[in-house]
Design a protein around this nucleic acid. Structure first.
Length: 556
RNA sequence: GUCCCCGUAGCUCAGGUGGAUAGAGCGACUGCCUCCUAAGCAGUAGGCCCCAGGUUCGAGUCCUGGCGGGGACACCA
């Protein structure tokens, strides 16, 4: 189609200027007066060739004469080339969209290669909180974007079912269990105080009765630990399922010990000669790989720090064949990035493995006031409570609409609002409206034939909308490459805004001649073709984000 | 003290590899239902893009140094 022909011709011209590798853009200009497509090639060449950009632009313009589908080329501003397409070429993309349908927006960048996205990875020590929610939404959307870019994606959840935190959980459950049995007992310092711990103690009591009354043994504590982890993991999976997030694999930390990976990692690290003993602990010289300080692998009491199984875990990712790994984590983990990579580099893995997406904190506001506490968890708001209150789709969208590295304020009033103030409803509503047009058309016995003549779509707004729909695949590719789902949100909101404007210009009381469902068959078919393409783009965009695109919305 | 992230309209935030006149939503104000769903649309007002240097034909964007906010700097995970 025209855009590709122009792109090829520009590339060809660049190489004739002796700059085949020059980087330039060919995209939809912000202002529709600047044509359907614009390129900065002349500007990009000017610094290379040390010549005035407008002069280069004139030579380019001459060379680009006669490309099929291009009506005219203008030189504008400092030296932009603005391309105005033939009417028929503009609308052609609408037919391509309809043809591709559910596949519109996909690209083949990944070439079927494997990639792992690890996310959530909550400790089984309590219900999922909002940070986990953001991570679940982000990780799932990034995974989905990668799938749309032809990657074969493995979604993984790593859970730390070993270590100090789990012991504290078990001890907290023991204290609550004793209380159930009518004894005096206090949750230990550093223990877990949320109401859920008491729930777990009660369900434990339901299973075992008073079998562990006055029992301080390790066996008793182990039984409580097993029970607590099982219950909490089940709860986390339920919450994630309610949020619409599924994993291909849950990888437990204990497996790393059971299958000898941790021990093997210690041996392998020792073999590198980068380890040493100080103060009775075993250290790794991670500073050799850019870490700020060396790290302890094995504590003086003989137990490994978190660092060691983490290295072992990432070695398992490599050994399972994943050469591309994206870890989605809270930015409070940022200090682990350097040390884990350092450990992996010590073992010969490449620099920058794995890749990290670190997101900032989430806070919740209602009525302009921060909401902090939850009955269930004690000190934080849980994901389940949020999903319960605003629904999975709204929660997902809100988690995704900001860049990961920006702090997120979750405005509950806005999330609960059911009008265009709420971006989720705005996008969904635009989709539902377009669907409604097709429903009404069917009722009147009107079909929209394939390959309808799109030349009647000549208004400025229609052209702008078409060019925006043309951009969708590029927008998804950019989002996938940058691991940035908010790019999709931004795209959808703007597209929905345009769809709504376009729809409204055909308001029956003001300008019925601009409605979609007009008597004139040629006009109607052209407009239905545009509406159909918009429907596909909105639906696919929401699908990437894991959000439903309703065909009708019921007013409340 | 060191490291990471952020600083753009009154508020919440977008701004692709540096490119044309800086963009949305909310809030404020003004219009528009004889209905393809007004859950909407059109319009108006609102900007030293934190500051100071630098690179460049061109900087919100890149570099350096400040200032302000958040986070991380355990033999916790």
């Amino acid at each position: 189609m025209a855009a590709e022909r122009i792109s090829d011709a520009l590339r060809q011209a660049a190489s004739e200027f002796g700059a085949a590798d020059v980087r330039f853009r060919l995209d939809r200009p912000r202002d529709a007066d600047h044509g359907d497509l614009a390129s900065n090639l002349a500007l990009a060449l000017s610094s290379r060739l040390r010549r005035a950009p407008r002069e280069i632009a004139q030579e380019l313009q001459a060379r680009l004469e006669g490309i099929g589908g291009v009506h005219r080329i203008e030189i504008a501003g400092p030296g932009f080339l603005n391309f105005f397409l033939e009417e028929s070429a503009v609308g052609q993309v609408l037919h391509q969209i309809r043809e591709a349908d559910e596949a519109y927006g996909r690209n083949s960048d990944g070439g079927g290669r494997e990639i792992m996205v690890e996310f959530v990875s909550a400790n089984p020590t309590g219900p999922l909180h909002l940070g986990h929610g953001r991570q679940a939404a982000l990780g799932d959307a990034i995974a989905s974007l990668l799938e749309w870019s032809a990657w074969s994606v493995h979604r993984e959840f790593y859970f730390n079912d070993a270590g100090v935190q789990i012991e504290r959980l078990a001890e907290s459950v023991r204290a609550r269990y004793r209380q159930v049995l009518g004894h005096e007992a206090a949750v230990p310092d550093g223990g877990y105080h949320g109401a859920y711990v008491a729930d777990i103690a009660r369900s434990f009591h339901d299973e075992v009765g008073d079998r562990y009354d006055n029992d301080d043994s390790d066996a008793a504590l182990r039984a409580m630990r097993r029970h607590a982890v099982r219950v909490l993991r089940a709860e986390q999976e339920r919450d994630l399922a309610a949020f619409g997030v599924r994993f291909d694999e849950y990888y437990p930390e204990t497996r790393l010990y059971a299958d000898g990976r941790v021990a093997a990692t210690i041996r392998d690290l020792d073999d590198t000669g980068l380890t040493y003993v100080k103060d009775g602990a075993a250290w790794l010289r991670t500073t050799a790989f850019g870490d700020q300080k060396d790290r302890v692998m094995v504590k003086s009491d003989g137990s490994p720090t978190y660092f060691l199984p983490d290295v072992a875990y990432h070695m398992s990712k490599w050994d399972r064949g994943f050469r591309e790994v994206v870890n989605v984590q809270g930015s409070d983990h940022h200090s682990t990035v350097d040390r884990v990579r350092a450990g992996l580099q010590a073992l010969g893995r490449p620099t920058g493995y794995p890749e990290y997406v670190l997101h900032q904190m989430v806070t919740v506001e209602r009525g302009g006031e921060e909401v902090r506490f939850s009955k269930r968890a004690g000190s934080y708001t849980t994901l389940a409570e949020l999903v319960q209150e605003v629904g999975a789709d709204v929660a997902r969208y809100f988690f995704l609409m900001r860049r990961p590295e920006a702090h997120l304020t979750f405005d509950l009033d806005l999330a609960l609002d059911q009008s265009d103030k709420n971006p989720v409803y705005k996008v969904k509503y635009a989709h539902a409206r377009v669907c409604r047009l097709f429903e009404l058309a069917r009722q009147r016995g009107w079909e929209c034939p394939r390959g309808a003549d799109t030349r009647p779509l000549a208004s400025r707004m229609e052209r702008e909308l078409i060019n925006r729909l043309r951009e969708f695949p590029d927008s998804l590719r950019r989002a996938a490459t940058a691991r940035a789902p908010h790019v999709v949100c931004d795209y959808l909101e703007k597209t929905a805004g345009l769809v709504n404007s376009w729809y409204q210009t055909g308001h029956p009381t003001r300008s019925p001649e601009r409605a979609v469902l007009v008597e004139d068959e040629q006009l109607r078919d052209a407009r239905l073709t545009l509406a159909g393409a918009a429907r596909i783009v909105l639906r696919n965009g929401l699908a990437v984000l894991g959000i439903e695109a309703p065909e009708r919305m019921v007013r409340l």
